[in-house]
Simulated scan of single mutants.
Amino acid sequence: MATSSSSSKGWLNNLSTYASRIYFFLIILQIPLFRVPCRAGMCTTPIHVTSSQLIASEIVPVGAVKALLYPGAVANSLIKNMTFPSWNNLISIYNLTDVKRASAMTDLQRLEVLAGSYFSVAGAVIGILKPGRMSMFGTLLVIWGLVKEGILGKPVNTDPTKSIFVYPTMFIAMVCAFSSVKYDVKKVARSVPARPVAKPLQSSSKSKLK
């Protein structure tokens, strides 16, 4: 019994680590989480949204964007036709060649999805080294952006071919993002100041002695 309880406690203590790893693979392997219009056409992963913005704004070198895209491109190619994608053709594979000339309004109308994608990608990479709250914030921003457009109708989209869609894997990503946050109950308990113990007044104690 003691061994089983200790093993279960060890698994719970490492829950944030396991969740961060699963979240990392969901993001870096570009498992489709949603479908939303972006500068590259229709984006289905946070990395695709982030890459289209990075290429358009020229914030980072193209080689860094390719390094971000390549693991997912390899995984998708192996699943579809058992081949490796060409490094030189990555930009055209993801339809990122003309994103600089695409309208910036597509991203401005979906700032929550764009910012959430940035946080999701950064949180997935950083979470491998140290699990934190960045993945959770990014996932919440993406979900709010999708809800705002899909349910509240902001912005209004009259083209059914460009309507948003949420895949069931989004729920898995959300659970992993929340589980990756490590809550130290003992640390919280130590941080709570102890309540002072009420002491009887000196005069009342003396009166009792009399």
Results as ranks from 00 to 15, higher is better:
S163A: 15
D184K: 11
Y183L: 11
P193L: 03
M170P: 04
I164K: 04
Y167A: 08
S179W: 00
M174Y: 07
K206H: 14
A173K: 09
A177H: 02
S191P: 03
I164H: 03
A194F: 00
G153K: 02
V192Y: 06
P196D: 08
Q202L: 08
Y183N: 12
K199L: 15
P160H: 11
A177V: 06
P160K: 05
P155F: 09
S203V: 07
K162I: 09
Y167L: 09
T161L: 03
N157E: 15
A198D: 01
P155I: 12
T161M: 07
I172C: 00
G153A: 11
V166P: 10
K206D: 08
N157F: 06
D159M: 10
Q202F: 15
V192S: 10
V175I: 15
M174E: 05
M174V: 07
S179H: 01
V192H: 09
A173M: 08
R190V: 06
D184A: 04
M174K: 00
P196T: 01
V197K: 11
V185K: 01
K182G: 02
F171E: 00
P160A: 10
K162T: 13
M170L: 10
V188M: 04
I172R: 08
F178N: 04
Q202M: 10
K186Q: 00
V166G: 05
K182Q: 07
K154R: 13
V197H: 01
K162P: 06
V175K: 02
T169Q: 06
V175T: 09
L201V: 03
A194K: 06
T169I: 04
D159A: 11
K154F: 13
D159H: 12
V197G: 06
T169H: 11
P160D: 12
V197T: 14
V175A: 12
V185P: 00
T161H: 13
P168G: 02
R190E: 13
S180C: 12
K199E: 14
G153Y: 02
F165K: 15
D184C: 03
P196F: 00
S203H: 14
F165T: 13
Q202G: 02
R190L: 09
V181C: 09
V166R: 11
R190C: 02
I164T: 15
K206L: 06
V175G: 05
S205H: 11
K199M: 15
I172S: 01
R190K: 13
F178D: 09
K206W: 11
F165Q: 13
D184G: 04
M170G: 02
A177Q: 03
K206I: 07
K182M: 01
F165E: 07
V166M: 08
S179R: 03
S205E: 15
G153D: 02
P193F: 02
A194V: 06
S203D: 15
S179Y: 03
T169V: 04
R190T: 06
Y167K: 14
K199Y: 01
N157Q: 07
S180G: 11
I164N: 08
K162D: 04
I172M: 09
A173Y: 07
V188D: 00
K186F: 13
F165P: 08
A177C: 10
V185N: 01
T161V: 01
V156H: 01
